[in-house]
Amino acid sequence: MEKQNNLLEVSHLKQYFPVRKGLHKIPLKAVDDVSFTIRPGETLGLVGESGCGKTTVGRTLLRLYQPTGGRIVFDNEVLYDSGEQYDENGKLIVDADGKPVLGKKIDKDMLPYRKQMQMVFQDPYSSLNPRMTVEDIIGEPLDVHKLYSNRKERREKILSLMETVGLNAEHAMRYAHEFSGGQRQRIGIARALAVNPKFIVCDEPVSALDVSIQAQVVNMFEELQDKLGVAYLFIAHDLLVVHHISDRIAVMYLGKVVEIADADELNANPVHPYTLSLLSAVPIPDPETARKSQRIVLEGDVPSPLKMPSGCPFRTRCRYATEQCAAEMPPLKDRGNGHFCACWNK
């Protein structure tokens, strides 16, 4: 298969937050060594349970947080590179003292790239300023990047954006609190689309909406992708929604990507034991089939990200765990068909 040009390449992305415990500061490894790529016009779904670092990945990508390490390449331009170098097996190259060998550090000013990468937020209630009209909310990116020459042009652009997301023109002068959840999410999408981005991080955009509205909004995301050719990183914890919209799906557990594959492939042949248990937890609408299917119930709780288990983070709850799992983190290995999985035993 010919390798396509990637829109976004993320490699070895790390995001640690310092947490004070007594006198010591220990790092909370919210995202630890995450790598993936997104092609233009593609949707990568990102799933995982609450607190596994999905949202942090999205926010770090857009540089809303300063990454601890890793490399972000967008549209063939390096936006951030901490300078750490890796060998072909994905191992960090260290010198004799055990310190990483640092290459050139790159940290670009994000302002010009904000026009190309945008974000849709999870909570449509807190992501819109209650003191601003819809027109001003959608118009803010236009103001910041000076994308219009006069007031009339600004207004026209805003109205056409509102039409794109299915809002009426007469809603322009209203305030966010006058809208329903679905409509608010549309306003948030219009705001993200205002700068005509190539890539949008959708941070659980439908999880705060009720099911009938979810379908509308998800379908709108798909229509917009067909029309505008944007790529999405679609973060969600609802596997059905993610499977519906995504071309490929990445599964995260405790800050690490454990499996990444095409959506249908992942659904048909899940490899990683965590993915297996996740898929078995999807509710089946037919009670007949549901009774026959076996749910894999995981034992124990998710370990605290402050006290990560050694080696594979999933080994404490994994029924296949061996000594090797405790010793070393398994690398993401190609299982063929673009299916990558990080597990020693499967």
Binding site: R59, L62, L64, M110, L111, R114, K115, Q118, M119, F121, Q122, D123, S126, S127, L128, N129, M132, E140, P141, V144, H145, G188, R191, V195
Partner: peptide, 22 residues
């Protein structure tokens, strides 16, 4: 800590404008 402030940062709004408008 509201998401709309984060959204404004994501758009590329300057600090002074965030304080003034948001």
């Amino acid at each position: 800590n509201n998401e709309y402030v984060l959204a404004a940062k994501c758009i590329g709004t300057k600090n002074s404008r965030i304080l003034r408008r948001h």
